[in-house]
């Protein structure tokens, strides 16, 4: 079973406005995209569990032309509050790297 980092050439996260985080999974080639872009480990439910957010609010966009999947989810608290640790949400992709794929 590969982990997500084995089948992606680049994974990144970034704030998308003060209330959302967006994660881009760039698969390493069309073949990996075809095989893994719908994997249960990166479903809306699974992503919601990783980040502790409501699955109904997780948005998922496969972009076949770029062999990538974009996943967006609302921040637990708006950007910049008392307990902010990652202003740009730029490190939020890290927990996804080790997800085991089918």
């Amino acid at each position: 079973m590969p982990s997500l980092k084995d089948v992606c050439r680049y994974v990144r996260s970034k704030n998308a406005g003060p209330f959302w985080v967006t994660v881009d999974l760039f698969f390493d080639g069309a073949e990996n995209y075809a095989k893994y872009h719908d994997d249960p480990a990166i479903s809306a439910d699974a992503i919601a569990a990783v980040y502790g957010v409501d699955a109904a609010l997780v948005r998922r966009f496969p972009v076949a032309s770029l062999s990538m999947v974009k996943i967006s989810y609302p921040r637990a608290t708006p950007q910049g509050g008392v307990h902010e640790r990652d202003m740009h949400s730029g490190q939020q992709f890290v927990p996804l790297l080790e997800l085991s794929l089918r």
């Binding site: 406005g17 770029l66 974009k70």
Partner: peptide, 16 residues
């Protein structure tokens, strides 16, 4: 084409 189309992804919660 890739650098241009990929820019729609940047900081957008919806790429389309």
């Amino acid at each position: 084409p890739e650098t241009v189309s990929a820019h729609m992804l940047y900081e957008n919660s919806d790429p389309f």
